[in-house]
Design a protein around this nucleic acid. Structure first.
Lengths: 341, 341
DNA sequence: CATATCTGTGAAAATGTTTTCATGAGATTT
DNA sequence: AAATCTCATGAAAACATTTTCACAGATATG
């Protein structure tokens, strides 16, 4: 019952290897009696063609690699799920890789997937291997997710939602509800995501006549991790005159902040308002449902999968960028202030 | 800049293919000058060995397939994350497959992974392809997760936490808090998980002198999906004399039930108590933190990955079963009843 | 000095496919 | 009836590796 090969099938059916191949792939006519004989042998022996050999022959693997920062993050989880679904529909499979934001790990994965001859890569980059990625992109279809590559030599697609717009949206929303003293818990400013979200924030503040200088008191810089959200909330709330609202720049940090509020019995939105960049799993059964900028991971995941498949088909496609406009999703975490300030 | 091959490297370095291979793998001594010449060419050309060819030669792929019901389910998500981590440490990669509980899809995936010559499979089965799985297990290392195969011919490992114990635990917990009229929202009773949890429930009820016959009024049978949790909660709560507590047999249905309670302004635990089988993401910031049976997906995921790697190393290992005892995790979703009943 | 041993390298086989090309038998045409 | 054509099938090459085996040159041994 060891693994059958096409050669074995051919022997058992008393025909040549080529004929078996033809039966399997239907590439040309074979006479009915031979065909049925071959089919019977295949059936009986539970033969499954070795796709490793096939891949070697064709130089394609019907596989795409997906490198994301964290499979357990609700945003990337949805992305992975949605793109996996689409790939499966088109008979592609997916090798999943989780970098945990580690640049070395990312580089290893890229090398690995290269050697593995995957047909394409969906990449949420750490932002620290731009040179290598640009180089690899010359001969491997790549779709970037959420993080842009600064290198001019990069060839491929870029799917994102506008971080700048999203950051502005948060401020506009809070401002509309009467908030003026607005705190911000930043993500990693070394990454385009973190940087652009903050720029949007600053721009909108300025538009409303509130300047955010380098000495802005209500600012905490994290790196997108949950515990920094907790810490940031603490720091901002312990100010002698704390902000009336806080904008948190990703979902993980928002969860951290919410844990802080809950632990300290700080009521949301009565004591402090909260607006979050990004969706949170099952947010409708949280103790408070955050007003948030929604990134549409469903749309983005699907688009990313579509793009990589197109690019696999046509490697010569020009660089493409698809930037979705985020929208603000109402929850109940933002209080309306009368102008007591 | 097209993909380099070992042949190309050999040509550029003016040596034979065999020598290049020896340099790369260090399989035998090559003179220093030749070695450095070869290394330089490899470096310059960014050559990465084609692991498809390697796999064909060796009949191993350094890859395991992971088939789970739903990558977005918090339980399996953790399992996937943890096992992926361990595999990566040991230089294995992972092809991820999501069945959505569809038996055909599972079968496709199994065939696919077979042809793909993965070194082993971690499988959370739908429970409807037992024959094929048993057959496949003769020549492919398999570790089953959470769902047992009934077929005697199966060869492999089985990792689980005791569903029976878990089911009992829920009842004991509720009983201890004074509950007697206890509702249950079952998962799929056609699956070992659903069946055994319910058996544990029934057994514990009996032990406490409460018989659960076939006409038990506080029972709703679902299939582990969220909307059935919603529906089940509705059905039970709309009884003229509703139960004082409900045991929900998985996390997805629990979320559904919680959505129902919230929508109808039914307070937990004041109006009704809730105990859940399984962990929920970020449960500490939900509107109520469910008392729940914890399955330790971290432990199970790690164990599963360890097991499959052991079995890949030693395919002749006897069948093994590892059943963890679940524990009950305190939340604040269970009220203590005085004996007004 | 002749023979035996060692050693660094290359040629070629093998892994499981698909596909091109050749072949020969049967059918069709003149 | 001979010549041509069609077409089902098989042999072999190709894909990129690793490894066995052979070989030639150098060194050691008698």
């Amino acid at each position: 019952m060891a693994a059958m090969t096409i050669k074995e099938i051919a022997r058992l059916a008393g025909v040549s290897i080529a004929t078996v191949s033809r039966v399997i792939n239907g590439t040309s006519y074979v006479s009915p009696d031979i065909e049925s004989r071959v089919r019977k042998v295949i059936e009986d022996s539970q033969y499954v063609p070795n796709s490793v050999a096939r891949s070697l022959r064709f130089d394609n693997t019907w596989t795409v690699g997906s490198i994301i920062s964290d499979i357990a993050n609700s945003y990337f989880n949805i992305i992975a799920k949605v793109s996996l679904d689409l790939l499966r529909e088109r008979n592609y499979s997916m090798i999943i890789c989780s970098t945990e934001e580690d640049a070395d790990r990312e580089l290893n994965y890229l090398r690995f997937l290269d050697g593995r001859k995957v047909d394409g890569i969906m990449l949420n980059s750490t932002g620290k291997n731009d040179d290598y990625i640009a180089l690899l992109s010359q001969r491997m279809p790549i779709v970037l997710l959420n993080r842009r590559i600064r290198h001019a030599g990069f060839r491929g697609d870029f799917i994102d939602s506008s971080n700048h717009e999203g950051g502005s949206l948060m401020v506009d929303h809070l401002f509309r509800h009467g908030h003026r003293r607005i705190g911000v818990i930043n993500g990693d400013l070394g990454l385009s995501t973190g940087q652009e979200r903050f720029e949007g924030f600053v721009e909108a503040m300025a538009r409303h006549g509130l300047s955010v200088g380098s000495d802005y008191p209500f600012r905490f810089d994290g790196k997108f991790h949950m515990d920094e959200g907790f810490e940031g909330a603490r720091v901002l709330c312990e100010k002698s005159r704390p902000p009336t609202a806080i904008a948190v720049m990703n979902n993980a940090m928002a969860i951290g902040a919410m844990k802080y509020f809950k632990a300290r019995h700080i009521r949301v939105p009565e004591d402090i308002s909260l607006v979050v960049y990004g969706d949170i799993f099952n947010s409708d059964i949280l103790y408070v449902e955050p007003d948030h900028v929604t990134l549409n991971p469903y749309v983005i995941g699907r688009k990313a999968a579509e793009s990589i498949l197109e690019r696999i088909r046509q490697p010569d496609l020009p660089n493409r960028e698809v930037i979705y406009s985020p929208t603000l999703s109402q929850g109940n975490s933002v209080a309306t202030l009368s102008q007591q300030e």
